[in-house]
Amino acid sequence: MLCAPAIIVMIAVTAYPIGYSVYLSLLRADLRFPNDNEFVGLDNYVTVLSSSLWWNDVFHTVVIMVVSVALELVLGMLLALVMHRALFGRGLVRTSALIPYGIVTVVAAFAWRLAWSGTEGGFLAGIGPIPDDPLTDTFWTYVVVIGTEVWKTTPFMALLLLAGLALVSDELHEAARVDGANAWQRFWSITVPLMRPAILVALLFRTLDAFRIFDSAYIIGLNGTNPKIETVSILGYNQLLNRLNLGLGSAVSVLIFLMVMLIALVFIKGLGTSSPGAQSR
């Protein structure tokens, strides 16, 4: 009984909006014709899932997600090791590493866009292999979007990994060193297995975040006008806020939600099967 207020709040802010979205996704609902709503069952889902646009955008999103999270894991681990080992100025290192994470995504995305855009006078355009207007080139647009994501969220990854590093006791390392293991062997056979839960949690958080990417892809894609970098969230935004088509837009949102659930499920299963002791030898 005492937790009733908490449950009521949770229902009001989570369950109700989600339930309402699911309800809307079963309607033909357009804000411009508020009196013409009608129940259409799963029609909206059929429309979305049979549209090549949706699958293109899923592909774009997955590319961004996989590449950026992979890079973040590697860089985040390096950063975490640096922060862990730093003897001098530990506070300074940690603070400066965290600055990008403190910058608003929209601002960071604009900074990157303005640095790269040829038409907007970016200083990186045209240097070396970079084309005159990188933001019109599909490959380079992805480089910029993924770069923005990695730059901004690596500190977050590093912070989560740092917490995991703290769990690895120095005695194990010393024992391994006495046995003649080199630095790489110690990292790979001791640090990584012991950190596994922390790594998986960090990966889960970032993957879920990356799948819902909106701000940076929207801004670097010139306010959502570059179809080559349209992500599923931008697609949903277009249906909801450009077309005011609540039915189709909600169907897109619900599908994004389901895919996020799926990703989480895979990860949590992965987590469940890997308790730290079982894997390390």
Binding site: G118, T119, D132, D133, L135, T136, L222, T225, N226
Partner: peptide, 15 residues
């Protein structure tokens, strides 16, 4: 313009 697919009124003016 090589950036035709990103050109709006103002980009055209600038070029």
């Amino acid at each position: 313009n090589p950036s035709l697919e990103n050109q709006k009124e103002d980009q055209g003016r600038l070029a």
